[in-house]
């Protein structure tokens, strides 16, 4: 196997990049289950718009690493059809903005067929795409639409933040019986980290504490997690001990025992999270962006026991979005 087909950027120091970790996840899925295939624009010969699938074509062939024409609606819809027929596939769309051309298929078919057919038709499909700003690509390549998709019942929205997330998120997503949208932050692809040998899976239903702390809690996802960790280090220099929590999913799955955050693992001294609908919570925070919140501000905050919180977000303009 040539160096090109088995790229590993940091073989010596034990670190890997987010991109390589995603690729390892894909390689593992392709190697272990022959129902799995990858399909999208330039995923094969080109190696993926951001290089995630580089080398996989040579390893698994053009049937299973399948280049598509620029027809987002058709190949996402075809992914849905193939999933209905029992395949387990990963569809890559270059960026979240281009995915809007397939929104009809995602919303009206992937997210809806199971409910509308009373459970006859499930769509176990993983759709990956790049999200986020911060790379001087302007608005049409920079939106963060995770929150939009999180409003669609029937979808699961994930945003891996660390190399461990990136390495293991795919097998969890492929094991899900429903459509899973994977948002990969564009500014993370080259971020390096060390894979934790003790971590073998990602819990899609639970948030993870990425840094223990006692004074203040920062909840973040995707590209904001590394920034939050950096900020926590900076705060540590000033004597403030910050906890960083990586949010798990963007949507509360009906019937699932999921409150968005694990009350045992985190925030236990701060407030109860038992019955908190995390989406409602985020919406409330977004609506009140930048303000100090109290119980009076929003009914969902009743569960906050009066604790104050602040959503740190970019200005509400298209070219910024929520930048990382």
């Amino acid at each position: 196997m040539s160096a090109r087909t088995r790229p590993r950027a940091h073989p010596d120091d034990g670190t890997t990049t987010y991109r390589e970790a995603l690729r390892e996840g894909l390689r593992e899925a392709l190697a272990s289950d022959d129902r799995v295939f990858l399909m999208g624009e330039d995923v094969g010969r080109y190696g993926g718009c951001f290089g995630v699938s580089l080398g996989l074509l040579e390893e698994f062939g053009p049937d299973r690493v399948r280049d598509t024409p620029l027809s987002e609606s058709a190949f996402v819809g075809a992914g849905i059809g193939a999933a209905l027929a029992g395949m387990r596939l990963v569809v890559e769309i270059m960026t979240v903005n281009f995915r809007l051309l397939a929104l009809d298929q995602i919303l009206n078919n992937a997210a809806t067929l199971r409910h509308m057919s009373d459970g006859q038709l499930g769509v176990p499909l993983v759709i990956r795409m790049t999200t986020g700003a911060g790379r001087q690509s302007a608005a049409q390549h920079s939106h963060s639409l995770e929150g939009w998709y999180a409003h669609i019942p029937g979808l699961r929205v994930l945003a891996p933040a660390t190399v461990d997330d990136a390495r293991h998120v795919l097998s969890a997503a492929l094991a899900d019986p429903d459509p899973v949208l994977l948002f990969e932050h564009g500014s993370l692809y080259s971020a390096a980290g060390t894979l934790d040998p003790a971590v073998h899976e990602v819990d899609l239903d639970r948030a993870a504490v990425r840094r223990e702390g006692t004074d203040v809690t920062v909840v973040a996802y995707s590209g904001c997690v590394p920034k939050a960790l950096e900020a926590a280090e900076e705060l540590a220099g000033t004597g403030i001990n910050a906890e960083v929590v990586r949010q798990a999913v963007q949507r509360v799955v009906p019937g699932a025992d999921f409150t968005g955050l694990d009350p045992d693992a985190s925030l236990r001294d701060t407030f109860e999270m038992d019955s908190l609908d995390f989406l409602a919570f985020v919406e409330a925070l977004a609506a009140l962006s930048g303000r100090e919140l109290t119980e009076d501000d929003y009914p969902a905050l009743d569960t906050w026991n009066g604790c104050a919180a602040r959503l740190v977000a970019e200005a509400d303009a298209p070219a910024h979005g929520r930048s990382g």
Binding site: A74, F75, G77, G81, A82, N109, S117
Partner: peptide, 22 residues
């Protein structure tokens, strides 16, 4: 089905057929 979005079923058909092909 049974699809109320005009044209919405067409890509599904391609995908079902792709699975058979593969």
């Amino acid at each position: 089905g049974g699809n109320a979005i005009v044209g919405g079923g067409l890509p599904l058909a391609a995908g079902l057929a792709l699975a058979d092909r593969m």
